[in-house]
């Protein structure tokens, strides 16, 4: 039986102030240790949450080969040259290989990436399995026509500086949800500096509320 229990057993609980002084001494050193332990534990958990957790949560994949957006924008002029609308107003997204072949029937430059593209995909007439950074979950409907034509928005507002990039960044996917990291954004708290930092429902709603005075009904963006 422990000391305390013994004491309680032998005296009524109400007058246990007898051992108060003793306990105070014991309590002080215990308190100091406790504080240090608390701070240490806090640091460990804080750091692992901050640094380790995102690493564990997302798995990284490389694109089939690097794509130089900046070079292509210089050559072609603007985004719409490759990412265009069909006549029914639907958006083509990433061009299929037929469009690329219009220029890249044979290798134009001498980069390794272009060589991979021409030898592995053009010559074999195979589509490139691009990993799409901004792919939304299956339940989401998004109209490029409404935003680009209807509301006159530019690509950058949502997609950021991708047109300036010279290499393809790794594609990171959330292991639990299976969604691209660009949906939640790089910041683990979900804090944004630019309008293109994340593409969550709240981000859509924020802009819709500002521009149309309404977050919209469910079916406006869900299917």
């Amino acid at each position: 039986m422990s000391e305390i229990e013994e004491k309680i057993e032998n005296s009524s609980v109400n007058d246990d102030k007898v051992g108060l002084a003793q306990e105070n001494i014991k309590g002080d050193s215990g308190l100091g240790l406790g504080v240090i332990f608390f701070i240490l534990a806090f640091v460990v958990f804080f750091l692992s949450g901050w640094l380790l957790f995102p690493k564990l949560l997302y798995s990284k994949k490389q694109q089939p080969f690097n794509f130089n957006h900046r070079l292509h924008v210089q050559e072609m002029g603007d985004c719409e040259s490759c990412h265009s609308f069909r006549e029914d107003g639907s958006f083509t997204g990433i061009p299929q290989i037929g469009m690329c072949v219009e220029c890249h029937e044979e290798q134009l430059g001498d980069t390794k990436d272009e060589e991979i593209f021409v030898t592995q995909y053009v010559e074999n007439e195979k589509e490139v399995p691009w990993l799409i950074y901004s792919r939304q979950p299956d339940c989401v409907f998004f109209s490029h026509a409404a935003h680009v034509i209807g509301a006159n928005m530019d690509c950058k507002t949502c997609h950021g500086d991708i047109g300036e990039s010279t290499i393809s960044k790794p594609y990171e996917v959330n292991r639990i949800t299976g969604y691209s990291r660009d949906i939640w954004g790089k910041n683990i708290w979900g804090i944004k500096k630019h309008s293109w930092d994340s593409m969550k429902m709240d981000d859509c709603a924020e802009c819709h509320l500002k521009e149309t005075q309404s977050k919209g009904a469910c079916f406006q963006c869900h299917k």
Binding site: I4, E5, E9, V13, D16
Partner: peptide
Amino acid sequence: KLDKIPFFH
């Protein structure tokens, strides 16, 4: 038993 622990008491 639990009541013997001062805190719980």
